[in-house]
Amino acid sequence: MTGQNRTTNSVPSAMRQVFDEIVTATDAFCLRHLDEEYAALCAKLSAKLARKRPSPLVRGDRRIWAAGIVYAIGRVNFLADASQTPHLRTDTMAELLGVKQTTMTNKGRLIMDTLKIGLMDPEFSRREIIDKNPMTWFLEVDGLIVDARHLPEPLQVEAWRRGLIPYVPAQAAASTASTPSR
């Protein structure tokens, strides 16, 4: 399932055509050169931009917006770092997207500044990045800082329900353990 199908319901009807055009481009790029997780994160970011009032997506070239979105998600997840998998240099990304590198990076930085997105932002991070980022999991409980991954499952569920952590680690570990290995 592509990112477009997962987030269409959260996009205002007035922005749906613009959203669809941008996500069609990000899906095509991500599924060809990156992976499905990148496609889903790009669709999530596109939907957030489409919901912004007024949406910045209404003005400008959809292709440039798509490139900026891919760049922003790639930057959050260190895509240009050769130690990451998948890995893609910024100049290669711009070439594959058919845009100038400076145009793509400027649009990506504008997106990140507009939505206050930083490196390793849990909302737009790949699962691997989230798992490695201890700041994602630190919570204050009764005045003490604790790692949510070490809390009992009912407390993890409550922290997830409140939006304090991205997923319930106890349940993720159980589903991973029951998944047959290849």
Rank of each mutant, 00 (worst) to 15 (best):
A25Y: 11
T26A: 10
T26Y: 12
T26P: 01
T26W: 10
D27T: 13
A28H: 14
A28I: 11
A28D: 15
F29T: 02
C30Y: 08
C30V: 07
C30W: 05
L31E: 12
L31R: 11
R32F: 09
R32Q: 15
H33F: 15
H33Q: 15
H33I: 03
H33G: 10
L34Y: 02
D35R: 06
E36Y: 07
Y38K: 03
Y38T: 05
Y38A: 06
A39T: 02
A40C: 10
A40P: 00
L41V: 02
L41K: 05
L41Q: 12
C42S: 09
A43E: 08
K44A: 07
L45V: 07
L45T: 07
L45Q: 04
S46A: 15
S46K: 03
A47G: 12
A47P: 04
K48E: 12
K48F: 04
A50C: 13
A50Y: 00
A50S: 15
R51V: 02
R51K: 15
R51C: 06
K52A: 10
K52Y: 13
R53N: 14
R53K: 09
P54E: 02
S55Y: 00
P56A: 06
L57R: 09
L57P: 01
V58M: 13
V58L: 13
R59F: 14
R59K: 15
R59P: 08
R59C: 10
G60F: 14
G60Y: 15
D61L: 08
D61R: 12
R63I: 10
R63S: 13
I64P: 01
W65D: 00
G68H: 09
V70S: 04
Y71I: 06
Y71F: 14
I73Q: 01
I73M: 02
R75H: 14
R75L: 13
V76Q: 03
V76L: 00
N77G: 14
N77K: 10
F78M: 07
F78Q: 07
L79H: 04
A80R: 09
D81A: 07
D81C: 06
D81E: 12
D81V: 04
A82V: 14
A82I: 11
A82E: 13
A82K: 13
A82R: 14
A82G: 06
S83N: 07
S83V: 06
Q84T: 06
Q84F: 00
T85H: 06
P86R: 00
P86Y: 01
R89V: 00
D91M: 10
M93Q: 13
M93V: 06
A94K: 06
A94N: 05
E95M: 13
L97V: 07
L97P: 03
L97T: 05
G98T: 08
V99E: 01
V99M: 01
K100F: 09
Q101G: 02
T102Q: 10
T103A: 14
T103R: 12
T103L: 08
T105F: 12
T105L: 11
N106K: 11
K107V: 01
R109K: 14
L110D: 09
I111W: 10
I111A: 00
